[in-house]
């Protein structure tokens, strides 16, 4: 028996080390879930003869937490949203892409070439941009949906049937828009009002979940869901009778960016991958899959024609402003954390 155990252990150990020894020619991506078509990954893998390993996360905050908890040095690239790029750069988690390293850097649209969250595109390239608002099941509610009250002070038909994103940034920014106060305000009365409003809104909410944001709308488990525009479009295409709202109070606009992580184990492949995603044909494939908008020139010929006309990408004339999520200073952030914990209690 002992010898059997011994040889099993030896055999098994061999399998493990054999698996780990394949470290050459890899690219390790830390990405949002359901956000890149498998065919595109396969294409990159085939063109460059690398093995792609991908892990997924479901919020910018979860990405940061994982990297801070010792995952640095294991991933090559990640895809944080605008404000998270700024935070990650501030935390020293990003490597700098030197001038001339990216052959296709010129493809970046001028409006995204020098964003406030990454001046000069030192660490990142644009991936996709879009908006975050919410979608409402039109079979359940036929009234006016273009107001943030749908989320925070809903009509009786929708109360208790609302799914919120499990993402502090998105919920807080939307709440600030609803109250008409600036984001990251350090004004005590405003913070208190924010806290009180969220506490009373919570009674109307069924769940917090980002991963199932689409699924609950398709299955009908939720009648209102806070959701990203493209994810909402996918839900609609999968049969959910929903309409995406553009609240008059405003809505969240975001841009996700591919960043080069510090201590990337396969830095050269990471650069190749970023260059790959700056090619219009490739990034257009992401847009066609995820239903968002690319930040690269020349994608138009490769885009699915229905993309331009989808209602989720075309705000009505009376839509409020689209705003980026702001990075709060530590003092306000700690109060935000506190409000968030109380909210989820």
């Amino acid at each position: 028996m002992k010898s059997i155990i011994k040889s099993t252990v030896a055999a098994a150990a061999l399998t493990v080390t054999a698996g780990a020894a394949l470290a050459e020619g890899q690219l390790v991506i830390y990405h949002w879930f359901e956000y890149i078509p498998q065919e595109l990954l396969d294409k990159f893998a085939a063109e460059n003869d690398v093995e792609i390993i991908m892990d997924t996360y479901d919020s910018n905050e979860a990405l940061l937490a994982a990297l801070k908890a010792g995952a640095m040095g294991t991933y090559d690239v990640a895809v944080p949203g605008d404000y998270m790029v700024q935070i990650m750069a501030g935390e020293g988690l990003l490597d700098t892409v030197a001038d001339g390293e990216l052959a296709n850097k010129g493809n970046i649209q001028p409006q995204w070439a020098n964003p406030s969250f990454d001046p000069g595109r030192m660490h990142s390239i644009p991936y996709q941009w879009g908006s975050t608002s919410f979608a409402v099941n039109r079979d359940v509610y036929a009234g006016d949906i273009n107001t943030t009250s749908i989320l925070f002070d809903p009509p009786a038909e929708l109360s208790g049937k609302i799914n919120m994103l499990d993402s502090q940034g998105e919920v807080m920014a939307m709440a600030a828009l609803h109250l008409g106060i600036p984001q990251c305000s350090s004004d005590r009365d405003q913070l208190k009002a924010l806290n009180d409003m969220l506490q009373s809104a919570k009674a109307h909410w069924a769940s917090f979940n980002s991963d199932t944001a689409k699924e609950v709308l398709v299955s009908g488990d939720a009648a209102v869901g806070q959701i990203y525009d493209g994810f909402g479009a996918k839900a609609r295409e999968e049969g959910a009778p929903i309409e995406y709202a553009f609240p008059r109070e405003g809505y969240v606009v975001w841009m996700d960016n591919v960043v080069l992580l510090k201590d990337a184990p396969n830095r050269a492949n990471a650069i190749k991958f970023m260059d790959f995603l700056l090619e219009p044909e490739n990034i257009a494939a992401v847009s066609n899959y995820a239903r968002y908008v690319a930040g690269v020139d020349g994608v138009a010929p490769y885009l699915d024609p229905t993309l331009a006309s989808q209602p989720e990408s075309n705000p009505p004339a009376d839509a409020g402003p689209g705003v980026f999520i702001e990075v709060c200073d530590q003092q306000v952030q700690e109060i935000y954390d506190r409000i968030w914990t109380d909210l989820k209690n």
Partner: peptide
């Protein structure tokens, strides 16, 4: 439970993997 009523396990998890980071 829809992740809206924390239990101890979720509270702890949130400190390491989620928003709070404390």
């Amino acid at each position: 439970g829809g992740a809206k009523n924390f239990m101890i396990g979720s509270l702890i998890e949130e400190q390491f993997k989620g928003n709070a980071g404390n």
